[in-house]
Simulated assay, not measured.
Amino acid sequence: MSTSAPASLTGRTVLVANPSADLYGSDRMMLEAVRGLLKQNSRVIATCSRTGPLVDRLQELGVTVHITEVPVIRKSMLSPRGMLNLARIVMSTFPRMRRLIGAARADIVIANTLTLPFWTLAARSCRRPIIVYVHEAESSLSRAARTLLTAPLGLADGVVFNSETSRIACKAQALERRGKVRVVLNGVQGPATSRPPRDHIEGPARLLFVGRLSPRKGPDLIIDAAALLRSMGIAVTVDLVGDVFPGYEWYEDQLRARVRELHLEGVVRFRGFQSPVWEAIDGADMMIVPSRGDESFGNVVIESLLSARPVIVADHTGLREAASGFESAVRVAPDDPKAVADAVRRVLEDWGHFRAVAMVEAVVAQARLGTDRFHEGFGRAVEELDR
Rank of each mutant, 00 (worst) to 15 (best):
G379I: 11
E279P: 04
F270P: 06
R212F: 09
P197M: 04
I101K: 12
V241P: 03
E361I: 13
I201K: 13
L23H: 10
L15V: 05
Q189E: 15
R331P: 04
R368H: 07
R127N: 15
F94K: 15
S291G: 12
G325V: 14
R309G: 13
R271V: 15
L54S: 03
R57P: 03
F209A: 04
P197R: 09
A33S: 12
Y24W: 06
T10G: 12
Q189W: 15
P276N: 05
L121M: 15
L208D: 03
R178G: 10
A7D: 09
L208V: 10
L58Y: 11
R345D: 09
I110S: 01
A280R: 14
P310S: 11
V210M: 02
M232Q: 13
A227K: 11
N186V: 15
T3M: 14
I302Q: 14
R355D: 06
S49C: 13
K39N: 09
Q366C: 02
G242E: 04
F326Q: 07
S76N: 09
A343K: 01
E136D: 07
A343T: 11
F354T: 02
E69Y: 03
P71Y: 06
R98T: 14
E327V: 05
S20W: 14
A329I: 12
R50F: 12
S92C: 04
E327W: 06
P215Q: 04
G52A: 03
D282C: 02
R96Y: 12
P215G: 14
D157M: 04
E138R: 04
N41R: 15
E249L: 08
V244Q: 08
A225R: 01
I222S: 02
E383S: 13
E252L: 08
L153W: 01
A144Q: 13
V330N: 00
Y251I: 03
L78T: 07
A205C: 11
C170E: 06
A172N: 10
I131E: 02
R230M: 01
F354D: 02
I234C: 02
V72E: 02
R98A: 09
A172V: 11
H66S: 15
S328I: 15
L348P: 02
T115A: 13
V184H: 01
L155V: 05
L319T: 13
S142Y: 03
Y248H: 14
A322R: 04
P95T: 07
D336L: 03
T13M: 00
S291Q: 08
R74N: 08
S214V: 05
H263Q: 15
E136P: 00
V364M: 07
M91C: 15
E361L: 05
V184L: 10
T3P: 01
R355W: 12
I312G: 00
P197Q: 06
Y251R: 05
A123M: 06
S142I: 00
L228R: 10
R127I: 04
I312Q: 02
R12N: 08
D372W: 04
R178K: 11
P334R: 02
G242M: 12
A122M: 05
T150L: 05
P80Q: 12
V267C: 08
S231P: 00
A333G: 08
P6I: 05
Q173P: 00
R128E: 01
A21K: 01
D22R: 01
